[in-house]
Structures are given as C-alpha cells and as structure tokens.
Amino acid sequence: MAENFNQHSDVSAADLARLSQEAKSEATPSTARIIWDEFKADKPAMVALVIIVGFILFVMIASLFINTPQMMQTDIMNYFDKPGTDGLLLGADSGGRSVAQQLIVGSRNSIGIALGLTAISSTFGICWGLIPGYYSGYIDWGMQRVYDFMMMLPMTMMIIVLVTIIPHYNAITLTLIFSIFYWEGTSRLIRSRTLAESQKDYVAASKTSGTSNLKIIFREIMPNISSLIIVDTTLSFAENIGVETGLSYLGFGLPPQTPSLGTMIANANDPNNITQYWWTWLPAALEIIILCLSISYIGQVIRRAADASQRQGAAD
C-alpha cells in the first residue's frame, strides 16, 4: 500500500516514515491505553485494582485445594472455636466448620455468580438498549413496554417466588433467574445514549451507503459507546455481588450446604451468634464491603477515563 502510494506522489520514503510516526504519536490513544494511564495517575485506584485482581485470583486458586463436602461436614469437637484455636485461622461456626475455608469457597461462589450474572444481564441489557434506541418507532415502543412491565415487578419477591418453584436449583439456574430481572438499568442507560448516537452524521452516512442495520448497530454504534458500556458493566458487577449475597442471606439464594458470603452473614440472624460468635459472620460482611467499595472505585476511575474533561492521567 505504502509503496503503491509512493509511486504516485512526491513524498520521499523518509518523509513518509516521519509523517506516519507523527500521525501515530498524535492519534487519540486507545480506550485501554487511556484507562491504564488513569490508573497509573491514581494511586488508590491502583491499590484497589491490585486488591481485587489479587483477591479474585487467590480465591479461585485456593478454593481448588479445598474439598467442599469434607469442609461442610460437622465436627462437634470444633464447636464455635475461637479464631486461632485448633489451627483454625478464623475459628469455626456452630457445626465446627472452618470459617476461613468457608469464606474462600463462599467468595468464589459469590464472585462467580456475580460475574456470570453481570455477563448475561449486561449483554442482554446492551442489546435491549441498542436496538430500541436505534430503530425507534414501533420496535422502540414495544420494547419499552416490556421494560416498563419489568420495572413494575417487585424484583426481590419475584426472584424468591421463582427460586421456590424451580425444583433442583443450583448456581447456574440461580444466575439465570437473577439475570431475568437485572438488565433494566443497563438497557435504560444504553438506550438513551444510542438515541443520541443514532442522530449523528456517521450513522446517516452509513445508512446512505447501504450498510445493514445490524452492522451499524454492533460495529459502529456499539464501539462508539464502548466506554459507557465498560463503566456500566464494572458498576453493575459491584451491585450484583450484593444481589446474590442478599438473596442467600434471606435463605433464597444458594442452598445451605453451598457456602456463600450471604449464607455466612445469615449466621448473624441468631442473636447468640451475632453477639458472642462474631467471627462466624463479621469477616464475610467486611469482605463484601471491601469488595464492593473497591470494584465501584475502579468503576469510578474508568468513568473518569471515559470523560475527557475529568481525566487525571493526562499525557495529552
């Protein structure tokens, strides 16, 4: 291409190399690059990122070495062991089960479900926002009515009812049930942004030159609002951790034999546990708080990176 170009122009090879070098250095940096610069400029954000990535990796790997059924076996000798006794780092609960091990496996389950829920509900929400936002008219009207209806449903109650209906529910069905109800926020956000984006010239130009609608939606509009999508996905991940743990806390999430951060906090429902045996539930509660704060903080940093006027990591 470059040689071909050279044959028909007066620009020498050296000039061309210099020009393309200049063009490259002056080009807008990629989204990933901007986000990374933003993290480098903001030390607390870097700490949060390291904590989150390190913690998730630790939990995922460590839980591989824990035999869950064996861990969940009752051991009366360790009944409410204090932290530090009998070689149990965080003590034991009413069944003599190690709290530290439950915490690791529980975190893996809770984070795993939150990740799955985020992946499914965000994908669905993005589509449910892009399509009505782009087409408007009847399609928009119809899809908005579905959205309105879903907004009306009392979410927590519906999930609880569905969980009791499904005969053999496990982590996967649970994630699917949650996903039915948690796409509205994303959809609303993406739709309003797509509405604005569809009015822009490049969309009109693509339409005129005969690009198919689907291609315009997913190859042109979606990349242009990608920063919004990344921010929203991060923030909903933090929120979704609360969704599963909350339902498990009420007793309608993961079954009791499967540890989750929520079921561990549910230990606090017993007035004896909450006062005397604080180690059975407090670590899980603190962990959720730290996780949610760190993840949302990362989300805030990415949001800042997406908005050029607020960037701090500025090599511009």
């Binding site: 933090a238 951790i241 609360g242 743990t245 909350g246 806390y249 906090i265 606090a268 007035p271 909450i274 006062t275 604080w278 539930w281 509660a285 959720i288 708080i289 949610c292 704060l293 993840i295 949302s296 903080y297 805030q300």
Partner: peptide, 23 residues
C-alpha cells in the same frame, strides 16, 4: 454518597443492628 451507594443494604442493616442494637 459513593460509600452508601456501593455497600449492599442488608450488610449495613446487619452491622447496624449488631453495633447499635446488641453491642
């Protein structure tokens, strides 16, 4: 507002009842 927005509400309730109700 950032802190109150992120933390799941039920965790706050449990911590609240522990600190102000029991302790």
């Amino acid at each position: 507002t950032y802190v109150t927005y992120c933390i799941p509400f039920f965790v706050i309730l449990v911590l609240g009842i522990w600190i102000f109700g029991y302790v």
